[in-house]
Simulated scan of single mutants.
Amino acid sequence: MKKVLGVAAAALTAVVSFASPASAADHTKHMHTGDAYGSVTGWSGEGVFTEEGDRVHICDTDADGRGVAIYVYKGTPDTGNVLYSMQVGGEGNCVTKSAADGGVYNLPESRVGFKFCRYWVADKIIHTGECKDYDFLNDNS
């Protein structure tokens, strides 16, 4: 009987350890500024949305004099409403917001959209370009 219970416990442990990483991977979405032109070499910024905790993380990855900006929507970028935006500039700099920050950062459990862009400042005005739209079902399941 002890041998049967030992085998059952080992099998259950194996199932849990194999299922968890796959589940987590399915709920993390990656975004890149170069995607606007289909370029995998022209990235100047990276973004990651993780459903668990509604974590939105963006980084400037190129010393090109431009930063990156993200606009977060309830719904899609085409039809939704902007909940908040973030910007960061300077190669290696990053910014993160999550549900733990409260308010608008606690995203709805529905379709959420992102407009991820490069940005620059000219004459004290923020300009955006090379934007790519993304949308995901934030079902956290």
Rank of each mutant, 00 (worst) to 15 (best):
M1S: 11
M1H: 09
M1W: 08
V4G: 01
V4A: 09
V4N: 06
L5V: 10
V7C: 03
V7T: 09
A8K: 08
A8D: 03
A10T: 14
A10V: 15
A10W: 08
A11R: 00
A11H: 00
L12V: 15
T13E: 02
A14G: 13
S17W: 07
S17T: 15
A19H: 07
S20I: 15
S20C: 11
S20N: 09
A22T: 13
A22L: 13
A22D: 07
A24N: 12
A25T: 10
D26H: 11
T28W: 03
K29R: 10
H30T: 11
H32Q: 10
T33Q: 04
T33I: 10
G34C: 03
Y37N: 14
G38N: 07
V40L: 05
T41V: 11
G42C: 08
W43G: 15
W43N: 15
S44H: 09
G45R: 02
E46M: 09
G47L: 05
V48A: 07
V48K: 06
T50F: 01
T50M: 07
G53K: 08
G53R: 05
D54T: 07
D54Y: 03
R55T: 14
V56Y: 00
H57C: 00
C59Q: 10
C59E: 13
D60Y: 03
D60T: 02
D60E: 04
D62Q: 13
A63W: 10
R66I: 07
G67A: 05
V68P: 05
A69R: 12
A69H: 08
I70Q: 02
I70N: 02
Y71H: 06
Y71Q: 06
Y71S: 11
V72M: 01
V72W: 01
Y73F: 15
Y73S: 02
Y73P: 04
G75E: 09
G75V: 09
G75N: 07
T76C: 02
P77H: 01
D78H: 05
D78C: 01
D78Q: 11
T79E: 10
T79L: 04
G80S: 04
N81C: 02
S85A: 09
M86N: 06
M86G: 08
Q87T: 15
Q87H: 11
Q87P: 02
Q87G: 06
G89N: 12
G90R: 11
E91K: 13
E91N: 15
G92F: 06
N93D: 09
N93S: 11
T96Y: 01
K97Y: 01
S98D: 08
A99Y: 05
A99N: 08
A99I: 07
G102D: 13
G103C: 06
V104N: 09
Y105G: 00
N106C: 06
N106G: 04
L107A: 01
E109I: 12
E109T: 14
S110Q: 12
S110P: 04
S110L: 03
F114H: 04
K115Y: 02
K115W: 00
C117G: 07
Y119S: 03
Y119N: 04
W120I: 10
V121D: 02
A122E: 15
K124R: 10
K124A: 14
K124H: 13
H127C: 05
H127L: 09
H127F: 13
T128R: 04
G129T: 13
G129H: 11
G129Y: 11
E130G: 10
E130K: 05
E130H: 09
K132R: 14
K132H: 08
K132C: 05
Y134V: 01
Y134I: 00
F136D: 03
N138S: 04
D139Q: 12
S141F: 04
